[in-house]
Nucleic acid binder design. Structure first.
Lengths: 257, 257
DNA sequence: AGCTCTTATGAATCATTGA
DNA sequence: GTCAATGATTCATAAGAGC
């Protein structure tokens, strides 16, 4: 749906959404952007609506990263976490998205930035979670793990503990799947032309599988080009995407009120 | 040196330390521990001494992770970041330590925890950093790419002058290493007896290489079994370790005052 | 299909230049 | 003086082309 989610969500019924997963706009001093100073206030107004439309056992996943302002990591992200908690959200967990292919570059005071936050907030301590849905086949996991760290990484930084890998392979014998950790290794997707998606499909896919079942309703209040909705649809979930520029809804939404 | 670093550091001269790298005790409600509520106050008293003994162009690396209290990630860590910044420390960067082999286990409301913060604070925007000391082997993609530099590679940066081409070729010819990112993949070391493994040697090693030169002085104010000092010694740096239980200094400290 | 090789580009950051 | 725009730096991935 097109518009500011602050307004659009007012027309939504309570407790109807099972999962909110989104990557909001970053703070930005430029005209048209939200300044770091007013970011928390801006976000919390919308978070009030998020809390209203979210099911009591639902989850809210916030993908964000503090950018550098005047040589420092800005603090509006952690200030937002404190504000959300003060407003009653439970800061249940923090997942790390490790971006395997991060932007290159060299600066005198920092290395390449290769990760982003994925904060997990809930409204109650008893929330829905389907861990078995994100199990990874052992072979696949091992391969992906190897690939994600790349042979280089393995040799790079584990000369001392090189035996670790082989030892673990031995431990895997007999098992077929394992649960992943709270560190997610996904490459950013670069669609060679046209619209860039904020995050790769694998990211919303992981959280949709982890926190919803087929038929549940997924909301992305800052959906951009609609990656979250595309993934939700593919996984058999209903979805609503809201963006000031664009509207995304792939399936007719059943009995929204 | 044995004792509380708050007391011990009072006897230290100003600006003598080139790098502080440490993993402080976590907040803990149990008797003898620092409670989450008073953690920031407890830490900041010591951070005042850190700022006093640290060289103006030195670095302070804080390895920490918020533990779960009553089902939520506790907030004392990010409150500490805000407090440090308020006290004048610059929050320059945040590195993520990805623990390749995290503790097994399964909980109903979260996946296995496999990462920790490594906050990087400085006293000035111009600080010492030796990036070339932490270079890692290049990924295998490079060989193919080296075979023939793409046209875009050569023209992308300076379509106008054309001089960029030669510069670029020179930069890449024969390159075998690249700079790492701010995500560090180290396995935890399990010293099979007694002591809980603080951090693996690779972790302080990375930051000691990145922020100091041989002969510099490294301080770990919560040194535990002294991993930081052992690594510093191996890398040719002087070091001082302080712990309430134990004293660690491997080399005689030259002209400490 | 499967493989190799080529090419574009991604929520980046800093220093410098220009308004 | 501040603030905006431009240039320089650099790595990993997937799409696409070619065989």
């Amino acid at each position: 749906m097109a518009g500011d989610c602050l307004e659009v969500l007012r027309g939504f019924p309570e407790q109807r959404v099972d999962l909110i997963v989104t990557s909001p706009p970053y703070a930005d001093r430029r005209p048209g952007g939200i300044s770091p100073d007013e970011y928390t206030e801006w976000f919390m107004a919308r978070a009030t609506q998020f809390a209203r439309v979210l099911h009591p056992e639902g989850s809210f996943v916030l993908n964000i990263k503090e950018n550098v302002i005047n040589g420092e990591r800005s603090t509006y992200v952690i200030e937002l976490v404190l504000a959300l908690r003060k407003a009653g959200w439970l800061w249940t967990e923090e997942y790390i998205w490790h971006k395997r292919n991060s932007m290159p570059g060299r600066w005198p005071n920092r290395l390449r930035d290769a990760w982003e936050h994925c904060y997990h907030f809930t409204l109650s301590r008893r929330f829905r979670m389907y861990q078995d849905a994100v199990r990874v086949p052992i072979g696949d996991w091992a391969e992906r793990r190897m690939a994600s760290l790349s042979e280089a990484d393995m040799t790079r930084q584990s000369s001392r503990t090189g035996s670790g890998v082989a030892k673990r392979v031995a431990n895997w014998a007999g098992r077929t799947t394992v649960l992943p950790t709270n560190v997610l290794h996904f490459a950013t997707e670069s669609h060679n032309r046209g619209h860039h998606s904020a995050f790769p499909e694998a990211l919303p896919e992981f959280f949709i599988k982890l926190f919803t079942e087929p038929g549940h309703l997924v909301l992305d209040p800052f959906c951009g080009t609609g990656t979250t909705c595309v993934v939700a649809d593919r996984l058999g979930r209903d979805s609503v995407g809201i963006d000031v520029d664009k509207a995304v809804r792939l399936r007719p939404l059943p009995r929204l009120r």
